[in-house]
Structure formats: C-alpha cells, structure tokens
Amino acid sequence: MQLSVPRDLYEKIGSKEKTVELIRIGLLSLRTTFLEREIADLNKRIRNSKKSLAELPGETERLDQLLKEAIEDGKILESLLEKEA
C-alpha cells in the first residue's frame, strides 16, 4: 500500500521512517481527542439522564393529576350536554 505525502512536507521531515512515525503520532493524537469528546458527550448524557430520573416521577404525577381532572371535566361536559339537549 502507498501513501501520498505532500512532497514539501516529506522533504521537510527528511525520511520515510520519520514521516510514517509522524502520521502514526498524528492519528494517535486524533484518537485521544475523539475519545475525550466521546467521554465528554457520555458525561453530558449521564447528567441529562440523572436530571430526568429526578424530575420525571414528579412531572408524571403532575400530569396524572391534570389527566384525572380532565377526565372529571369530560364527565361534567357530557352531563351538561345531555341535560341541555
């Protein structure tokens, strides 16, 4: 397999071995950056999940209460419409 290295850069570096080494170091450096980003992203998702975990039961309970009230309102509405019909 062949790699096409910009000639000016190759001449600046001076040898094939050093060029290959720098490519390898560059890729390893990129890999650590990607891993750091992945870790930061996962930490952010964990924070959001923990927040949801803390807030969802209360929010669901609040909605459940509103739902019960709405169901009661529905019964009242039907009764008012029936009686007025």
């Binding site: 910009p6 570096i13 560059g26 390893l28 450096s29 990129l30 890999r31």
Partner: peptide, 23 residues
Amino acid sequence: AIRNVIGLGMKASYSDTQLEQIA
C-alpha cells in the same frame, strides 16, 4: 488529510508510546 495528520503529529506534546497509553 496526510498533511493535516502530520501537522498534528508535529504538534503533539507526547511520544507515540505515551499517546498509546493515554488512548
């Protein structure tokens, strides 16, 4: 891309062994 990767390699503060360990 190789130009950019070599650029990263030149700027790296660690050796390849250290980077392997960090990764």
